[in-house]
Every structure is written in structure tokens, then in C-alpha cells.
Amino acid sequence: MHAPLLLGCDFSSSPTKRKPVVMALGTQRSGRVVLSKLEKFATLQAFGEWLAQPGEWTGAFDFPFGLPRELVEQLQWPLDWHECMLHYASLSRPQIRDTFAAFCNARPVGSKFAHRACDHLAGSSPSMKWVNPPVAYMLHAGVPLLLDAGVHLPGLRQGDETRVALEAYPGLLARELIGNRSYKNDDKAKQTPERLIARKDLITALEHGQTRLKLRLKLTHAQRDMLVDDASGDCLDAVLCLMQAAWGAGQGGPRFGLPARADPLEGWILSA
């Protein structure tokens, strides 16, 4: 019997050859997650075409699957998740930026952004944030690809149950293992020895299974060197998402580890 395919995705809303979408593929057996390979996509179209292929997998994706209910209600957008996402996808990025900026400008200092229920638990940025990091644009680029591919989105939208897509956040698992130490940076000038050591410590902790997910990462020497040497952290983030996918797959359907209280408009971050 073959082990089901797992995937973890480090996403970019504007991928390029230099900064592609990175996908870690692997399998799980007896609590060991084996990394088989990394796939890279320089365009959203190429990534979408991969997702739309027939297959059998459980994947964890590093972009938000929903907007804060408070925001959606105030903007009087549809309260049904699918209708809300179709409306959101119809907007341009400048329209999103201007709409969200107006929302924030009308609110008091210290509570400019609306948050989802899972954001506080996961320590993630609000999904309406359009800069540093631009997760609002990641949602805008990513969710339509999942909808077009017809994948199953537990708690949000019924789809092809052989391809299960779950929202992940690599920072949640990284913080559990190395605290608030920074392990990556896209800026070459900020790719310091301290961040290199943090990546090594993070990978070692994953290999030893030092997480509440109770899973151990299995790497070859070459894979380990590659993850250590990738100072951007994109490949390592994809692997962190792969670990979260393995945990979700282990929890099984219909919710794959998502709590019953998860808001069907906002979505939920896996293992938060």
C-alpha cells in the first residue's frame, strides 16, 4: 500500500524565477515525514496547472484562506465564504489596498486591522494586511487557484476529496521550536551567521521530533545541506508546511484537525 502524498507550499503572490512558489513533497510513515523532493514554480499559472492535475494529496499552504468576519461585515461583502472569495477575486490590488486602508484609517491607533479568530493563537499577520507581509495579496492570488483547481477545502467548500487543501503558517511551528529567533531573510546583507545557526537548530529540532505534532522529519544529507544553505528560508518554510500537512492528514477527515469552532467565513490555520 502506497503512502499518500503530502505537500507543503511556501507561496508568493508574484512569483519569479528568483522568488518562486516552493512546494515540498513527501510522505508519512509511522510518525516519520520523509521529504521526497522540492518543486518550484516561477508563475502562478504553472502552479495552478499543477494543482488542477488529478491526484491524491493533502496539502498545507502558507497563505490565508479567508478574511476577518469583522472586516467583511463592515464592508457589507457577502457572508458566504465562496461568494465572498468570488467578490474579493474580482477586485484589483489597488482597490483592495484603498478599501483596506480606508477601513484602517477610520479605526483607533493600536487596533487598525481586523483579525481572524485564529490569528492571535497562531501569531500570524491579519489576512487583510497588504504590506510587510502582503498576505491580503497572497489570499487574492492563492485562493482562486484552489477554487479553479476544484480541490477540497475542509470547513469552507466541498471539492474533490482526493485533493485536500489546508491553510498553514510555518512561523507557528518555527516559533515552537526556536522561539522568536529569525532564521531567514531575502536581503543578502541580512543573511547573517545567526540566522544560519537558527536554521540549523530548527532543522535539527524537526529531525528529532521536538514538536507537539509528534512527527519527525527524515532528510538526506544533501537535503539538509540545501535547507541550511537557502538563506531566504523559502524551502524550509515549505518543509514546515509539509510537517503541518502530515499532522492534518494524520487527524483525518472530515476536518483534518480543524476545530469545530472554526469560523466558516474566516477559515483556520492548521494546528493553531
Rank of each mutant, 00 (worst) to 15 (best):
68 P>Y: 02
153 L>C: 08
255 R>I: 05
159 G>W: 11
52 A>S: 15
129 K>N: 11
12 S>Q: 10
167 E>R: 03
235 C>V: 02
33 V>D: 12
177 L>A: 13
104 C>Y: 06
188 K>I: 03
160 D>R: 04
48 G>S: 11
267 G>I: 09
74 Q>W: 02
144 P>C: 10
194 E>Q: 15
198 A>T: 05
29 R>G: 02
194 E>H: 10
26 G>E: 11
126 P>Q: 06
179 G>Y: 02
37 K>G: 05
34 V>Y: 07
112 K>E: 11
178 I>K: 13
107 R>V: 00
208 H>Q: 15
117 A>K: 03
71 L>E: 01
252 G>E: 13
143 V>Y: 04
18 R>A: 15
75 L>Q: 15
49 E>L: 11
207 E>Q: 15
230 D>T: 08
234 D>S: 09
96 I>F: 05
38 L>C: 03
236 L>Q: 04
239 V>A: 02
171 G>R: 12
264 P>Y: 05
77 W>Q: 08
79 L>N: 12
238 A>I: 04
16 T>C: 04
204 T>P: 00
162 T>A: 14
16 T>H: 05
62 D>Q: 09
77 W>D: 10
269 I>W: 04
209 G>F: 08
152 H>Y: 02
169 Y>D: 10
70 E>P: 00
55 G>L: 06
219 L>W: 01
85 M>S: 11
224 R>F: 00
24 A>Q: 00
26 G>D: 12
217 L>Y: 04
204 T>G: 00
31 G>K: 10
245 A>G: 06
172 L>N: 06
181 R>C: 09
62 D>G: 08
86 L>C: 07
208 H>S: 05
71 L>C: 08
115 H>G: 01
73 E>C: 07
150 G>R: 04
256 F>Y: 15
237 D>Q: 10
101 A>S: 13
45 Q>R: 14
50 W>M: 09
38 L>T: 08
125 S>P: 06
49 E>C: 04
81 W>T: 09
170 P>D: 14
71 L>W: 08
31 G>Y: 09
243 M>A: 03
2 H>G: 01
177 L>Q: 13
170 P>H: 13
262 A>W: 11
136 A>D: 07
221 H>Y: 01
263 D>Y: 09
8 G>D: 04
33 V>C: 10
117 A>D: 03
36 S>D: 06
48 G>R: 07
211 T>D: 07
121 L>S: 13
194 E>D: 13
147 L>H: 11
194 E>W: 06
74 Q>A: 13
121 L>D: 12
65 F>A: 02
73 E>I: 06
218 K>Q: 13
242 L>H: 00
178 I>D: 13
95 Q>C: 10
207 E>W: 00
18 R>H: 14
254 P>S: 00
106 A>F: 03
168 A>Q: 02
178 I>V: 15
271 S>K: 08
34 V>A: 12
100 F>C: 05
84 C>M: 15
153 L>W: 08
254 P>R: 01
102 A>F: 01
104 C>L: 05
271 S>E: 11
171 G>M: 11
157 R>H: 13
145 L>V: 07
261 R>S: 12
232 S>R: 12
179 G>A: 00
109 V>Q: 11
100 F>A: 02
88 Y>P: 12
89 A>L: 04
104 C>K: 10
253 G>A: 14
67 L>V: 08
63 F>R: 04
87 H>K: 14
76 Q>I: 04
33 V>L: 12
136 A>W: 06
243 M>R: 04
131 V>G: 01
271 S>Y: 14
260 A>G: 09
